[in-house]
């Protein structure tokens, strides 16, 4: 990949690391929120906001911007951190996450500069993304639309309605990314609803399917490049990830889906692990 310099990759890794640190700080300060599915999506959000997407933090409503819908709205800590680091609002505000005085609602809201769609009730974001992609086609605009979905989220029927329609409408300007971290609120996804074979399912629904390691910056960039080459077909990137990635006691467990560090010791451990990781980047 000659087009991606090692410096760029290092920069994106550092941003993902910062998103992780903010996720822990924000949810600990708020005493609530969803760290597990935020930590799994850190690299995806870093690449989208610092490499892939055309956005203007000074003009969040810029008509020609690329659109992003966080369909798995509970990953708001990571999302808000990415937006703040990109310059949509000051990072100081992040510490007011979920507080009455702040615009940083528990789940994404149009009150937040840079947010393109209210989400939080799972299963709806892909439909909104379709509407935005259709509008781009109608207006003959070249902006692209990205939606980040949870793997538990795709148990919702609305997702499969949207999947059929996006393919029917040949929306090659639409990219869905599934954060396949294998865990939902209550348990491992496959103990709740068997989702595999996921690649075959999306393929059968008419999508172009790319399967990657969702923590590998280069693979994410390559998949997004590949999606740009799609003609008359939407692309889904199945990003295999680790729930709670980067904080050892949060990894591969449902326990921290919707729970912040439970005490100072847990908090310090999380921050230390993330800072240790940074020194290795």
């Amino acid at each position: 990949m000659s087009e991606i310099s090692s410096e760029k990759i290092r920069k994106l890794k550092l941003i993902a690391n910062e998103i992780r640190e903010w996720t822990i700080k924000m949810t600990y300060a708020a005493k609530s929120g969803h760290p597990g599915g935020s930590l799994s999506a850190a690299e995806i959000l870093a690449v989208l906001y610092f490499h892939e997407m055309k956005v203007d933090p000074q003009n969040p409503e810029w008509e020609d911007r690329d659109r992003f819908v966080l369909s798995k709205g509970h990953a708001s800590p990571a999302y808000y951190a990415a937006l703040a680091l990109r310059g949509f609002f000051p990072t100081d505000e992040l510490m007011n996450f979920r507080k009455l005085s702040s615009f940083l609602q528990g789940h994404p809201s149009l009150m937040v500069p840079g947010v393109d769609m209210c989400t939080g009730s799972l299963g709806q974001g892909l439909s909104a993304a379709i509407g935005m992609a259709l509008a781009a086609k109608l207006d003959k605009k070249s902006y692209r639309v990205y939606a980040l979905l949870g793997d538990g989220e795709i148990e919702e029927g609305n997702i499969w309605e949207a999947a059929m329609t996006a393919a029917t409408r040949k929306l090659d300007n639409l990219v869905a990314i599934i954060d396949r971290n294998m865990i939902q609120l209550d348990d491992f996804t496959d103990r709740m609803v068997v989702l595999d074979p996921l690649e075959e399912k999306w393929n059968a629904f008419g999508w172009r399917v790319l399967s990657i390691n969702g923590h590998d910056i280069v693979q994410i960039i390559r998949a997004l490049n590949e999606a740009r080459r799609s003609v008359s077909q939407p692309t889904v990137i199945i990003a295999h990830t680790v729930k709670g990635k980067g904080v050892s006691y949060m990894e591969n467990t449902a326990k921290y889906h919707g729970k912040p560090p439970q005490n100072e010791e847990e908090y310090n451990t999380a921050i230390k692990e993330i800072e240790d990781e940074r020194r290795g980047i």
């Binding site: 659109r67 769609m117 509407g131 935005m132 207006d139």
Partner: peptide, 9 residues
Amino acid sequence: GIAAGLARS
């Protein structure tokens, strides 16, 4: 949902 996305655009 699609109606919402079109309106947002």
